[in-house]
Amino acid sequence: MKKVFSRPRSLRKVPFHYCPGCGHSIIHRLVAEVIDEMGLREITIGVPPAGCAVLAYFYFDFDMGESPHGRGTALATGLKRALPDRLVFTYQGDGDIAAIGTAETIHTANRGENITALFINNACYGMTGGQMAPTTLLGQNTTTSPGGREGLRDGYPIRLSEMLALTDGSAYIERTAVNSPVNIRKTKKAIAKGFKVQMDGLGFSLIEIVSPCPTNWRMSSHEACQWIEKEIIQYYPLGVIKDVTKRGQGC
């Protein structure tokens, strides 16, 4: 019988530990599929963050080097400069890339480092138990913004991807989501595009992926996907933010 669906070569035969309804499992699979389809497994080095996805190295079957919290893009810079012909990507949460690691992220983008950052935006700190993240929406209840986030007290949800698009070194930036089959397909295409931009040597690429966190949002998986559609995407619109391969697009 013809096999039409199987585990990607770039994923180990290990069940994911992520919570039910979490987006990481989907995104891991997409990354593995893209790397397989592009034939890059043997030249890939991934950099997992501190956060839920730190254990990504148990699932991906290619080289992985763990980063201190927030420093992924700086660490990836060292890797990529030493091995310029490899595919180097970071896998970072919103607290990692947009709070503690903001400086590293902006300057890595500004240097046009030829790496790809996968920025998983779930609007909270997942691993530590659902605290407020830089991406937490106004009014959103978290364990450290009880009663809802207030802009003038807690700061406003940050639009990191738009900020990074302003740097001359960034080449490709897109925001996607994994809350529906359509958006999952678009996310896979975006990851492939980011990796291609890197392999073509065009500069820094980043895919922000809005991802459900039903456990910390205190929702069912279905509600979480709907909440992304109704709330998060309204504040964080999906689509290509910058693409240097297309003239006249982006900022």
């Binding site: 080095i45 950099v47 080097g65 980063s67 201190p68 420093r71 700086a74 660490l75 990836a76 810079t77 060292g78 890797l79 990529k80 400069r81 030493a82 091995l83 400086a103 590293e104 300057h107």
Partner: peptide, 12 residues
């Protein structure tokens, strides 16, 4: 950032 670039280079 510098010391983390060192970590990355050393990993390589």
């Amino acid at each position: 950032a510098a010391i983390n670039m060192v970590i990355g280079g050393s990993m390589a």
